[in-house]
């Protein structure tokens, strides 16, 4: 079914968005992902991912206040929706379930 699938990067963005609670927008999310994963993030991909997540109904957005460090421009803040949280949770349970079935590998 098109529209509800959660890509790897999208999941990462959604997760970060949930963690940052009231201060989640492109820049903070990108910075947080860079910090956590230590990989280089392109700002626009985060923006694109957020746009797609909003389309799928996993996040809700609202315009925040303008600050000086943004050259007086307002920011679009994101908040995780119930559906988004459920999808995230579902993804984790499924993963946990599969991890339990994991045989005892020795490398």
């Amino acid at each position: 079914m098109k529209g509800t699938h959660l890509g790897e990067f999208e999941e990462l963005v959604l997760l970060t968005c949930a963690l940052l609670v009231d201060n989640a927008y492109s820049v903070t999310i990108a910075a947080e992902i860079e910090k956590q994963t230590e990989r280089s993030i392109t700002l626009s991909t985060v923006h694109t991912a957020l746009y797609r997540l909003e389309e799928k109904g996993f996040v809700e957005s609202y315009m925040g206040g303008a600050t000086g460090e943004r050259g007086g421009r307002r920011r679009r803040l994101y908040r995780i929706s119930a559906a988004g949280f459920e999808t995230l949770n579902h993804a984790r349970t499924m993963r946990d379930k599969m991890w339990q079935m994991m045989p005892d590998y020795k490398f």
Binding site: V27, E69, R70, R73, R74
Partner: peptide, 16 residues
Amino acid sequence: RFLEEVEGDLYEWFLR
């Protein structure tokens, strides 16, 4: 529709 937020984001990213 996106101009304001994008410009703002880019500005912050630039400062970073």
